[in-house]
Simulated assay, not measured.
Amino acid sequence: MAETQLAVRGVDRLDHRYLENLGAEAVPALDRLPEPDRSCVLFEVVVANELYRRDPWNGWNLAREQARDVLARRPVQRRIECPVP
Rank of each mutant, 00 (worst) to 15 (best):
47 V>C: 04
49 N>C: 09
40 C>Q: 04
17 R>V: 09
31 D>I: 06
41 V>D: 00
53 R>T: 13
66 Q>F: 03
27 V>T: 04
28 P>I: 06
81 E>F: 10
4 T>G: 08
51 L>G: 01
11 V>C: 01
14 L>K: 00
85 P>Y: 14
12 D>A: 12
47 V>W: 09
42 L>S: 00
58 N>I: 07
69 D>I: 14
26 A>I: 08
56 P>N: 05
9 R>L: 13
45 V>Y: 00
73 R>G: 12
25 E>G: 14
16 H>E: 03
24 A>E: 05
23 G>A: 13
37 D>Y: 07
74 R>Q: 12
1 M>Y: 09
60 W>N: 09
43 F>Y: 07
82 C>M: 11
83 P>S: 11
14 L>M: 07
24 A>G: 09
82 C>H: 12
73 R>K: 14
42 L>R: 00
11 V>I: 08
16 H>W: 04
13 R>L: 05
8 V>E: 07
72 A>M: 10
29 A>E: 04
54 R>W: 11
30 L>N: 00
53 R>N: 04
58 N>A: 05
50 E>C: 05
63 A>L: 04
63 A>K: 08
63 A>N: 14
13 R>E: 06
23 G>W: 04
13 R>D: 10
73 R>E: 12
53 R>Y: 12
44 E>M: 12
15 D>A: 06
79 R>A: 11
57 W>V: 10
2 A>P: 00
21 N>Y: 02
41 V>L: 06
21 N>L: 07
22 L>S: 04
82 C>T: 12
44 E>N: 10
24 A>P: 12
70 V>D: 04
76 V>W: 01
16 H>N: 04
6 L>S: 01
34 P>A: 09
44 E>T: 06
36 P>M: 07
12 D>M: 03
14 L>T: 01
81 E>D: 12
32 R>H: 06
71 L>Y: 11
21 N>F: 02
78 R>G: 11
17 R>K: 06
75 P>R: 05
75 P>K: 05
15 D>N: 15
75 P>Q: 03
26 A>D: 04
81 E>G: 08
21 N>T: 13
24 A>W: 01
64 R>E: 02
67 A>L: 10
28 P>M: 07
6 L>W: 00
72 A>D: 12
60 W>K: 15
35 E>I: 10
51 L>M: 10
69 D>R: 15
16 H>S: 03
78 R>Q: 09
84 V>P: 02
23 G>K: 13
85 P>D: 14
18 Y>H: 11
82 C>G: 09
12 D>S: 11
74 R>I: 01
27 V>D: 00
55 D>M: 09
53 R>D: 06
72 A>Q: 13
53 R>L: 09
61 N>H: 14
39 S>Y: 03
28 P>G: 09
12 D>R: 11
60 W>I: 14
6 L>F: 02
80 I>R: 12
39 S>F: 02
85 P>E: 14
47 V>P: 01
51 L>W: 01
28 P>H: 09
74 R>H: 13
8 V>G: 01
51 L>F: 02
67 A>S: 10
47 V>N: 06
60 W>R: 15
49 N>I: 03
40 C>E: 02
5 Q>I: 03
22 L>T: 13
63 A>V: 05
41 V>P: 01
77 Q>C: 03
23 G>Y: 05
75 P>F: 02
84 V>R: 15
